[in-house]
């Protein structure tokens, strides 16, 4: 995340904010905020947001957010384990938060979170959203040198 920030700041890569014009919200993964704060004394909430804002300026905050945010529900291996119903039940807070922001795109930096939100919560709670990894958002917003059009992948990807 810090690397992406640095590249963007230095101008080594450039992004076009016109590509993602819809309302977007950023989900703070537990590991990047609370866990990181406990283990390393630093929480990485602002960095991800800054990068997101460069690509998609209409950023809506969920409430609570940053270190106080709600967990997606699939952490600690829950995504991979058999507790399907529990995982969906625990994720209801996140689903409600997302719906409340009115955002059409959810960006997050954690693979587990993205999977839970995209593959589970979106269907179970009928959320009308797209979900992207942070790197995915940056990649799809890149201004390629030479002015070539940025090939954007198909919306409905194979899971």
């Amino acid at each position: 995340m810090e690397l992406l920030q640095r590249y963007l700041r230095e101008g080594r890569i450039q992004v076009d904010p016109a590509i993602h014009q819809m309302a977007v919200t950023y989900h703070d993964p537990c590991n990047y905020t609370r866990k990181s704060l406990k283990a390393f004394g630093k929480s990485y909430a602002e960095e991800g947001r800054w990068v997101t804002r460069q690509c998609a300026p209409d950023l809506r905050e969920m409430y609570p957010s940053h270190e106080g945010n709600y967990c997606c529900g699939a952490g600690g291996g829950a995504w991979a384990m058999s507790f399907h119903e529990e995982r969906v039940f625990y994720g209801r807070f996140k689903a409600r938060q997302i719906r409340r922001t009115g955002a059409r795109l959810v960006v997050t930096a954690c693979h587990n979170c993205r999977d839970q939100i995209k593959k589970s919560l979106r269907h179970e709670y009928n959320l009308d959203i797209e979900v992207k990894y942070l790197w995915e958002l940056v990649a799809e917003s890149l201004i390629l040198p030479g002015g070539a059009a940025n090939p954007r992948p198909d919306k409905e990807q194979a899971l």
Binding site: Y63, P64, S65, H66, E67, G68, N69
Partner: peptide, 9 residues
């Protein structure tokens, strides 16, 4: 500044 109570929000 503590985002769980929303005091300044």
């Amino acid at each position: 500044g503590i985002r769980t109570w929303g005091y300044d929000v």
